[in-house]
């Protein structure tokens, strides 16, 4: 298994507050890695650093796109990170709510197509072919997440669980090799969580993507992850297989509190 993402000693300060303190993490191809920890541990900040929304204060982020040389991406703009092949979803759903479902997915194809203003106006054969490809690929993705029947509805009219799945479809549309999911199961009922569980495993097994996810639903995390990394107060406190993490005294303390406190 080759490494896809390697984060070394990532640190992020907001003024005097250190949100992430020398966190290292590695994701290898075909892996599902979960990042867990109590609220405020810095998980989402970590995601924002990797995807270029924040510029990390220190540390380095390297990616190894399959079949390409390694690239150091810390300090890259988010759109460049996406173009390299890392796509993400958001904890608080960020869909283009006044656009239709299919349009949302088509936006994901933006960085894989190249029509410019002139091409769009003239609408030549190349532009038309690209457009048809975009539509077809988007439909295929909607089918994968089970939203085909909503294709031409406005995204904001979708039920909550469907919105979460649409975000995953939109991220997949950018042709990533690594998918970052920020609490994909938040607010879902057990049945929806089960469906999501299947979807994530399917994305890994069939499409061969590696997945890094932040999640609070322990059942989901323990079910699907190959490795788990635990964060608390911006620090990495543990890493290991689900079984090892379940029995790690430090993790139990972080989640349940010190026994002497209680």
């Amino acid at each position: 298994m080759e490494t896809l993402l390697q984060v070394n000693d990532l640190t992020m300060n907001f003024g005097g507050l250190r949100a992430i303190d020398h966190v290292s993490l590695e994701v290898r191809s075909g892996e599902i890695v979960a990042l867990i920890g109590p609220n405020g541990a810095g998980k989402t900040t970590f995601f924002n650093c990797i995807t270029g929304l924040y510029r990390p204060s220190a540390g380095e982020i390297r990616v190894f796109p399959p079949g390409q040389k390694e690239i150091r991406i810390d300090g890259f703009k988010p759109n460049r990170v996406t173009a390299i092949g890392m796509a993400r979803t958001f904890q608080n759903i960020r869909l283009f709510s006044a656009m239709t479902v299919i349009e949302n997915v088509m936006i994901g194809r933006h960085c894989r197509t190249s029509t410019n203003i002139l091409g769009a106006i003239l609408r030549g054969p190349r532009t038309r072919r690209q457009e048809l490809e975009t539509i077809d690929k988007s439909y295929a993705l909607l089918e994968k997440v089970g939203l085909t029947r909503y294709a031409n509805e406005l995204a904001r009219n979708l039920p909550y669980g469907a919105q979460r799945r649409l975000e995953i479809a939109r991220a997949l549309a950018t042709d990533p090799f690594l998918l970052l999911l920020d609490e994909p199961a938040a607010g879902m009922n057990p049945r929806e969580t089960k469906e999501l569980d299947d979807l994530i495993v399917q994305i890994r097994d069939r499409d061969g993507l590696a997945i890094l996810l932040i999640e609070h639903d322990m059942k989901l995390v323990m079910n699907i992850s190959d490795r788990i990394v635990v964060m608390e107060y911006g620090k990495r406190i543990a890493e290991g297989t689900p079984d090892a993490i379940r029995n790690d005294p430090k993790v139990i303390e972080a989640y349940l509190g010190d026994e002497t406190d209680a």
């Binding site: 796509a87 006044a98 936006i107 769009a120 690209q130």
Partner: peptide, 23 residues
Amino acid sequence: SRIGRAWLALREDEIACVTMGID
């Protein structure tokens, strides 16, 4: 077109827009 959709996406949500690979 691709450009028009990018404009609409920009109007809807700037952060989601850039993380979807739009400059």
